[in-house]
């Protein structure tokens, strides 16, 4: 069966409609069939619908996403309560260990993103992976830094990613590879993103899963959960009324 490719982290400036439309068109021409754009916290439903119609015209499926950058675990919990029902994907940018641990164990978090290129500050260790594997959260790897960094910084980044992916595979945490770019010229085809994964020892099959099967499955699961008829995994309301 033909793979459906997804890039769940596009970051165009959504206020700039032209730039957003260009990014969507570019993603479509590169072969993506599902994209997610990182939206500001105050995004209204009307704006999400507008983006959906942009994407429909370009022939791609759109998933709404927010990136939370909480400073404390309490702030994370507050934001999750506020936004979980509103967005299809919730990513947490883990900038401290406390937040990383809370995000990894919370079932409402979809993606764990570790922005630091230094492994000592990435927080994705065995303990974190153990928590994430129980909560269905995925490890997100943005390829933007691999393209923009050079020399020593890129060496450190590749070393860190190699350790993170090894831990993720050991604990069966799904890996999702995204672009994380705002500039069209930094967007790459799915097969090219998968090739970049060879730099951190991910084999070709796993790398292709990370740009197709894993993100698509996550969005499908979340859409099912956000459906009004969803009760619990495997339980759906199929009919309503006084006679039921």
């Amino acid at each position: 069966m033909k793979r459906l490719y997804a890039d769940l982290h596009l970051c165009p400036n959504v206020i700039d409609k032209k730039q957003t439309a260009q990014a969507i068109a570019k993603a479509s021409s590169l072969g993506y069939r599902l994209i997610a754009i990182s939206l500001p916290l105050k995004t209204e439903d009307r704006e999400i619908k507008e983006l959906q119609s942009f994407c429909k015209t370009a022939g791609v499926d759109f998933a709404s996403r927010i990136d939370l950058r909480p400073r404390t675990p309490d702030e994370l919990l507050k934001n999750l309560r506020r936004f979980r029902r509103k967005f299809e994907i919730i990513a947490v940018v883990c900038e401290s260990k406390n937040v990383a641990r809370q995000a990894a164990k919370d079932r409402r978090v979809d993606l764990l993103n570790y922005p630091s290129p230094d492994y000592r500050k990435s927080f994705f260790d065995e303990a974190e992976a153990g928590l994430a594997s129980n909560s269905l959260a995925s490890l997100e790897i943005d390829t933007k830094s691999l393209l923009t960094l050079e020399g020593r910084a890129r060496i450190k980044l590749m070393s860190s990613l190699r350790k993170e992916t090894a831990v993720a595979r050991q604990f069966h945490v799904p890996i999702i590879i995204s672009s994380g770019v705002s500039d069209e010229k930094l967007m790459r085809k799915p097969a090219e993103l998968a090739s970049l994964a060879s730099l951190f020892n991910l084999n070709q099959a796993s790398a292709l899963d990370a740009v197709s099967t894993n993100p698509v499955a996550m969005v499908k699961r979340n859409r099912e959960k956000l459906d009004a008829r969803f009760v619990a995994p495997g339980i759906r309301i199929i009919r309503g009324g006084k006679d039921c």
Partner: peptide, 21 residues
């Protein structure tokens, strides 16, 4: 795969932004 990865990392030729697909 090595060459594909290397081509993907090309972001500039001279001072002009570029992507090689």
């Amino acid at each position: 795969e090595m060459v594909r990865a290397a081509l993907a990392t090309i972001t500039r030729i001279g001072d002009k932004p570029v992507a090689v697909h």
